[in-house]
Design a protein around this nucleic acid. Structure first.
Length: 391
DNA sequence: TCTGGGGTCCTAGGACCC
DNA sequence: TCTGGGGTCCTAGGACCC
């Protein structure tokens, strides 16, 4: 599967992995292999994945008192207070139910900490014999699992730390867990220390049962076709700003300032380069699409220069406040109640099957700048672009 | 021709204050 | 005979995640 814009490989089947196709390689570099082995290639389709994810999560939720959705395809299920359950058969029941109802195969790792559960899950996925469920519930199994886990595969240990640890003679999760706490703290600060504690069976990665509100909201994309004139950029920036406003409203927040950036393709060293951004403070915190788009375009005007082939643009909102605590401005001329009413209607119309039904005219209709998605899978469960439901 | 997007947390260092 | 010290706030950058 490819990233946005059909740029890089971001997910691979076991068969593709076996052919040596690496994560993150540019798609154009593997064209030869794709032809030769008849590999199926797909553009990303996040609306579809979001919908399927929702169905899976809904089923999982019905099995446990507490659950944390960690990402689009992962969740932490809390079995606390379920000591009398036979976890092995219960977990098997969960994975079967999900697969039967959605067609999506899932695996489960069970352990006393999240980091260990992630390791257990890797085993569950990797070895058929586990039948999708792996449990680490005693010291012996823990040690064995850690010894079989490469240090770079541990949740929380990325490329840089992995390199540093290997340099220090640490090859496996077990080697790492055997180091002293002070050494880990010194080399990898508190985050590394937390991973160390978790591997040693002490839970310390906080649980977030209610997802916290975002402190930062960003919408940015590369363009399918590079944009040279202001008009195309205006449409894109307006569209991204509008998505940011939607995200703000979804979490009952307002923006106090926004940043717009644009840049050329840095890979094209043969072309003139330009990177720029503009930060604008809003007179009054807002989540109205009309206002946010207005200021985003103003920011764009501040930085736009003719004569470049722009590859990417984005809108970032960093100072986010709750929509209940708005510091109003004496000279404020915006009818905020009216904006709020309009936005409510827009959000309702744009939900579910009629996503993107309503947008501001400035976002344009032909969307030349939009993503390249030449290998899109069918959107069976989500949007069929021109359907309008009339009640 | 062709290289993703959206987040978080932590730390160091600079600016500023008294 | 040699440039205070300690606090806070902000930002940039690094590291990590999916």
């Amino acid at each position: 599967m490819l990233s946005n814009n059909d740029g890089c490989v971001i997910a691979r089947s076991n068969e593709a992995k076996a052919l040596g196709i690496k994560m993150g390689v540019p798609a154009y570099q593997i064209e030869e292999q794709v032809r030769k082995h008849d590999i199926a290639v797909f553009s990303s389709n996040y609306t579809l994945y979001g919908d399927m994810s929702g169905r899976v999560m809904h089923i999982l939720q019905s099995f446990v008192p507490e659950m944390e959705i960690y990402s689009i395809d992962e969740a932490f299920l809390h079995f606390s207070g379920m000591d009398l359950f036979d976890l092995k058969s219960y977990a098997a029941k969960i994975t079967h139910t999900v697969c039967r109802s959605t067609g999506i195969p899932v695996s489960m790792g069970v352990a006393s900490t999240k980091t260990l559960a992630k390791i257990a899950n890797k085993f569950a996925k990797k070895y058929k014999a586990y039948q999708s469920v792996c449990i680490i519930d005693d010291e012996d199994k823990r040690r064995k699992a850690l010894k079989l886990t490469e240090i770079g595969d541990v949740w929380g240990i990325g490329r840089q730390h992995s390199k540093m640890l290997k340099y220090n003679g640490i090859e496996t999760a077990y080697d790492f867990a055997c180091k002293s706490r002070a050494w880990v703290r010194k080399k990898m600060t508190v985050t590394g220390e937390r991973t160390w504690l978790e591997l040693n069976g002490e839970p310390c990665v906080e649980s977030e049962l209610i997802p916290p509100k975002k402190k930062q909201i960003c919408t940015s994309r590369s363009f399918g076709i590079p944009q040279t004139d202001l008009e195309g950029l205006k449409e894109a920036v307006a569209a991204y700003a509008s998505i940011c406003a939607e995200k703000l409203r979804a979490q009952q927040s307002c923006a106090t300032s926004l940043l717009v950036f644009i840049h050329t393709n840095s890979f094209r060293e043969d072309l003139p380069q330009y990177f720029s951004n503009s930060l604008i403070r809003l007179p009054v915190p807002t989540n109205s699409t009309m206002e946010i788009v207005h200021y985003a375009l103003k920011a764009l005007h501040n930085i736009f220069k003719k004569g470049y082939r722009y590859k990417k643009a984005g809108v970032i909102i960093t100072e986010i406040v709750p929509d209940t605590a708005i510091q109003t401005n004496l000279f404020d001329k915006v009818d905020r109640k009216k904006h709020a009413r309009i936005m409510k209607v827009v959000d309702e119309l744009n939900s579910g099957f009629t996503r993107n039904m309503l947008s501001l005219a400035v976002q344009g209709t032909d969307k030349q700048w939009k993503l390249k998605r030449e290998k899109l899978s069918p959107c069976y469960t989500t949007k069929l672009s021109d359907i309008i439901i009339i009640k």
